[in-house]
Design a binder for these strands. Sequence first.
DNA 1: CCGGCGGTATCAGTTTAAAG
DNA 2: CTTTAAACTGATACCGCCGG
Length: 278
Amino acid sequence: MKKKIDLIKEYRIQKLFRILECFEKYPFNRDSLRECVLELYNGKSEKSIFRGMVISSLRHLGLILGYDLDLRLSANGNLIVAALRKSKEEGLRAFRAILTEIDHHEIMILKMIARKNLDFDNLKMSLVKKIQAPSEKQAKERINHWVSMLMQIGLLVKENEKIVVAETLLSKVEKDLDSSVKKDIFEKIFFETYNSIFKKQENIPIVDIPEIRTEVMTAFYIKYNLIVTEKQVDDMLRAMKFTTDEYIISLGRAMGAEEKLFKYERDYYRTISVRFLK
DNA sequence: CCGGCGGTATCAGTTTAAAG
DNA sequence: CTTTAAACTGATACCGCCGG
């Protein structure tokens, strides 16, 4: 069974950073957003750049949500921008965590490379054979782009003619991806965040999960300098007790097919609500 | 001559505008 | 108001120009 890899058309990370900043500036504002993005490509056409490259790449990477007028950052996309505000290196750290998480779960290039000891070209060829794509040319393009992104974030390094995994860096990333040390703080931040959104929306207790993900992740990052991805939020939320003598958490279903729903047991949910008993 | 950037053709759905 | 046409949107595969 060959793996499927999406084609990331825009894979230059510095460019993606600037695009994400446009999304942060103009959520739900397609016109300004499009203008902001096209400025980065000095006036190229919206069809090829905005629709053909930017939107599809960011969606494949899970960094944006919504269609036409509703385009906006996902929680992961927002985390990158928040980190970027601190420094470029921090932005890379966030991006690295998110990309590595995708790689570990879907593509596994890093694991494949760690096992082999091939030169660059042979390595790429062996990867190309393992993925499913419409043509060999397409497979090559996909692998090239993913490998390039892993190099840009520093997880793959050229060493003479060989290519190796930067183990020290990878272990740092894996620390960022490990939620076991964050569980204790999670409940505290989750309830604080819930309450602040609850107040913000004038005491309406039903909170959108994509929104609370964003806020929880930002709080973790700003207050504790900890990277928490969407997946980690979902994992830690699933691990919580939903019913105690202090509170009851309930989940709300989505109306139709939507993106990035919260999976709990066998179903997908869109909203969350907490009733405090004391 | 090669490859990367990004242009293009195309498609299936939608949405909007124009025409009747 | 209803029908018809045009434009828009997101996505995909493949192509071609240009710089090194």
